[in-house]
Design a protein around this nucleic acid. Structure first.
Length: 857
RNA sequence: GCCGAUGUGGCGAAAUGGCAGACGCAACGGACUUAAAAUCCGUUGGGCUUAAACGGCCCGUGCCGGUUCGAGUCCGGCCAUCGGCACCA
């Protein structure tokens, strides 16, 4: 590619200013208690979702959110805030480990290389991060505290009476291990033979591993779990006062899946056991004609008649062999086995045949449902397939009884002696009262949320600070935590990172490391990648602290404020709408309950940037070959053009395609700003333009200046950066052909543009200061300009004149004209007279200082 | 299937219920130039009217209806695209 002449010397000024900022520690935030800390300034904590440093480097999607937060950070500094704007690396994770398996290169080396690449790319864009606060989740000084927090969780239980976590010592029951917030359980997990590890649900796509595409099967394994379900209610309720997009709140609410209903007990014919059922439609109990248990339900073995045992065993085997994928495919086709036992419907004492079927899940509710085929789609399918009785008990509005079969909405209770004639809500209330009164059931709340599967069979993750010890009476292995003084627990050096293939973690190969004492061995599983990212925003407040995960004063300052959430602005992709944001909130609440934090929520305001598509309008991917790297953009147009284009493309939260032509347009705009202030001399050198003079702007220029201050300031506050840039383009267009460029106007423009194009504006500011010294100091030390409304008012205003709502003419009147005067003037316009001639004016609407609408009969 | 978001020129997009298309891209025309690039200026939703220009008229924000003096914007119903969940009782 031939050397193109640069429209302005960004290749010289951008590295220059980046090194000045670094040398001056321009963006270093001071903590309370540090020398020069200014307690009079308000704080602002603006955070990006820190990246996983992959080998591929940045693509243009990463810096979209980063640019937005950088503009906010720079703007807030100019507005006199102490700004915390940090960056770090979420560096544990599968790709580095897979690379290690392939090449033998230790993940630590891969990680270091990738971090260096990412960091240099971010620095080239000129982001104002406080690099002195850089953190890396794989650094033992960091994960020491990840392990420490795990111990806090492990050593806590959730007290339902206080609705918060408390130290395990306060638990009065026999078996503390049964209530810890971190516990071991045998659960069905996603096992991926190809990768040799269990995977989280989100790492499994259509029954295959996201990495490598290997098949994934369900398999019961003993795993570490975190009791996030204890917080289900608070995770929903405490969303309320957060400034998050409603759609994201809804996603979280749906994920937690609260439903209110009733737990009902059904007696079993001729037996002492009972089946408990959870239902949200206890008003349909008269229509419950059969009972279904999940195949794994603990009562199945006891209740199944001897002659049905082999059928049940066959059915269970058949289900176990199905993969998740097959299960989804077969979702519509109901299957099940009758176990030759009967339950008694407490409402009408009818016998209900008991079945097992895989459409009932052991993991939700009680693992048992009452079959109401009249008013539940799945029950109806099941009943039709196995010829079970179908009784309508809710009549749909405007429908006959017969037509109401399959109706699942609210209607009129029928065939239900106790509640006949009642609308569903009243029917529910009365039925519940009846059930409670006769001790058949009580109201209950259930959640879809499951506990968090927290262990992985991987090398490249935080080891659990847990040892397994032979306990004295029975010689069984029991877990216990390491002491805080034993942290960090660093993973052993390994030559061979390969999975064992047996479900045992790679750490099991480090025989010396595992051996803790004569009678104790270390836990060999590691934590998932989500661990480090569940609290990193806290560490940024005080990253060097080696006595505490975050210092109290630093936490109170940066995570404080009047709102429930601590981080003032958090920007990142929607892909983390549920998991990361839910996990972080959960950890935060445990730490809050334990008295370590000042706020109940981590993130007050959340904004999701939209993804950037390739020029072909498709998602960027290696296989499509449409990935745009920031490097090429910066080489050709400079970092400021890159930043401004990222913001000019469209609304931050919207999905939008990349366009190199668009970058060029924005680059032209910045070059125009440059040439507003600079000109080339005969030698081809850029020098301060003769046109710049210290004169006042004229009236129309003043108006543009103040309109721009107002618009840009308001737009930055609402993150509408695209329209802020448009307004600055209007400003520049207005001054491009002016004979004299008034100095104060130029300074105002540079300040407004500074958060967007910091290198260009710093350079021009400095150049102006060399000749005109009164502004003094660096651009970053200036106050943000204020607009004055008086310069925006017009002497004369244009009034739109409509006839029957259609624009017909315009009218210019004085600012002080009354509505009556405006109406009279409008009705006197020749065009309007012609239009209304011979017609009756039925009404005239006058909107003050705006419009007249003449309505004809 | 359920839930949510989005739908405006050739393209990215603007528009407190009040002039639809700001700003930018692309395209076309002009100035400068031996020429090109760069730069600057202008035109640019569709159609009709007009020899042409000025002007004038009609249509136009996914589709159908409603509220309103007035709807891209509010309400109801559809359609399409994208995203999430998916036997959750």
């Amino acid at each position: 590619m031939s050397e193109r002449r640069k429209p302005y010397p960004f290749d010289r000024i951008e590295p220059k200013w980046q090194s000045i900022w670094e040398k001056n520690r321009a963006f270093h935030a001071l903590n309370p208690g540090e020398k020069n800390f200014d307690a009079a300034k308000p704080k602002f904590y603006v955070l990006d979702m820190f990246p996983y440093p992959s080998g591929a480097g940045l693509h243009v999607g990463h810096p979209e959110g980063y640019t937005a937060t950088d503009i906010i950070a720079r703007y807030k500094r100019l507005r006199g805030f102490n700004v915390l704007h940090p960056m770090g690396w979420d560096a544990f994770g599968l790709p580095a480990e897979q690379y290690a398996i392939k090449t033998g290169q230790h993940p630590e080396i891969t990680t270091r290389t990738n971090v260096a690449k990412f960091k240099s790319q971010l620095q080239q864009i000129g982001f104002s991060y406080d690099w002195e606060r850089e953190i890396n989740t794989t650094d033992p000084r960091y994960f020491k505290w990840t392990q420490w927090i795990f111990l806090k969780i492990y050593n806590s239980w959730f007290n339902p009476e206080t609705n918060k976590a408390e130290p395990i010592e306060t638990y009065r029951g026999d078996d503390p291990d049964s209530v810890r917030l971190a516990y071991v359980a045998e659960v069905p997990v996603n096992w991926c033979q190809g990768l040799g590890t269990v995977l989280a649900n989100e790492e499994v796509i259509d029954g295959k591993s996201e990495v490598g595409g290997f098949p994934v099967v369900r398999r019961p394994m003993r795993q570490w779990m975190l009791r996030i379900t204890a917080y289900a209610e608070r995770l929903v309720d405490e969303l309320e006062d957060l400034d998050w997009p409603e759609s994201i709140k809804l996603l979280q609410r749906n994920w937690v899946g609260r439903s209110e209903g009733t737990e009902i007990e059904f007696k079993i014919e001729n037996r002492k056991e009972a089946i408990r059922v959870f239902t949200t439609r206890h008003d349909t109990i008269y229509g419950a004609s059969y009972m279904v248990l999940a195949p794994e339900h603990p009562l199945v073995d006891q209740l199944t008649a001897p002659e049905r045992k082999s059928d049940v065993a066959d059915y269970r085997a058949q289900i176990a062999s199905k993969s998740d994928l097959e299960r989804t495919d077969l979702a519509k086709d109901k299957s099940g086995v009758f176990i030759e036992a009967y339950a008694i419907n407490p409402a009408n004492n009818q016998r209900m045949p008991i079945w097992i079927a895989d459409y009932v899940l052991m993991g939700y509710g009680t693992g048992a449902v009452m079959g109401v085929p009249g008013h539940d789609e799945r029950d109806l399918e099941f009943a039709r397939k196995f010829d079970l009785p179908i009784l309508p008990v809710v009549q749909a509005p405007e429908k006959t009884v017969e037509e109401s079969i399959g109706f699942v909405g609210d209607g009129l209770a029928i065939n239900s002696p106790i509640i006949n004639g009642l609308q569903t809500p009243e029917a529910k209330a009365k039925m519940l009262a009846w059930l409670e009164q006769h001790e058949h059931g009580q109201s209950d709340v259930r959640y879809k949320l499951r506990d968090w599967l927290f262990s992985r069979q991987r090398y490249w993750g935080e080891p659990f600070p847990i040892v397994w010890e032979k306990s004295e009476p029975d010689g069984r292995l029991k877990h216990r935590s390491l002491g805080e003084n034993e942290l960090p627990l660093v993973p052993p050096p390994l030559e061979d990172f390969k999975p064992t293939g047996t479900g045992e973690a790679p750490l099991a190969k480090a025989k010396d490391w595992i051996r803790y004492s004569d009678k104790a061995q270390r836990e060999t599983n590691t934590m998932p990648q989500w661990a480090g990212s569940s609290w990193y925003y806290l560490r940024f407040c005080d990253p060097e602290n080696d006595r505490r995960f975050v210092g109290e004063e630093a936490e109170r300052y940066w995570m404080g404020g009047p709102k429930p959430g601590g981080v003032d602005l958090y920007v990142g992709g929607t892909e983390h709408a549920v998991l990361h944001l839910l996990y972080a909130r959960f950890w935060h609440k445990v730490l809050f309950d334990s008295g370590y934090l000042s706020k109940t929520e981590p993130f007050q305001r959340l904004v999701n940037q939209g993804i950037i598509l390739g020029e072909d309008n498709q998602k960027m991917s290696k296989s499509r070959g449409n990935i745009v790297s920031p490097d090429e953009v910066i080489d050709n147009y400079g970092a400021d053009s890159f930043r401004c284009y990222e913001m000019f493309m469209g609304p931050l939260e919207q999905m939008k395609p990349w366009s190199m032509k668009g970058v060029e347009g924005v680059s032209r705009f910045l070059a125009r700003v440059w040439r507003l202030i600079m000109e080339e001399n005969r030698a081809g050198e850029w020098i301060l333009s003769d046109g710049i003079s210290d004169v006042a702007a004229d009236k129309s220029q003043t108006k543009v200046i103040h309109a721009t201050i107002k618009k840009v300031t308001g737009d930055i506050e609402t993150l509408s950066f695209n329209t802020a840039i448009s307004q600055m383009m209007i400003f520049v267009n207005a001054f491009t052909n002016a004979d004299a460029k008034p100095l104060p106007a130029m300074r105002t423009l540079l300040l407004l543009l500074n958060p967007f194009a910091p290198h260009l504006t710093s350079e021009l500011w400095e150049t102006l200061n060399r000749k005109f010294t009164d502004a003094g100091g660096d651009i970053t030390e200036q106050p943000w300009p204020n607009h004055d409304e008086q310069f925006l008012v017009e002497d004369e205003i244009e009034i739109v004149v409509q006839v029957n709502g259609k624009l017909r003419d315009k009218l210019t009147v004085s600012l002080v004209a009354s509505d009556a005067e405006i109406e009279a003037a409008a009705l006197a316009l020749p065009k309007i007279l012609a239009l209304i001639a011979g017609k009756t004016v039925r009404k005239v609407v006058v909107v003050s200082k705006k419009l007249v609408n003449i309505v004809l009969a």
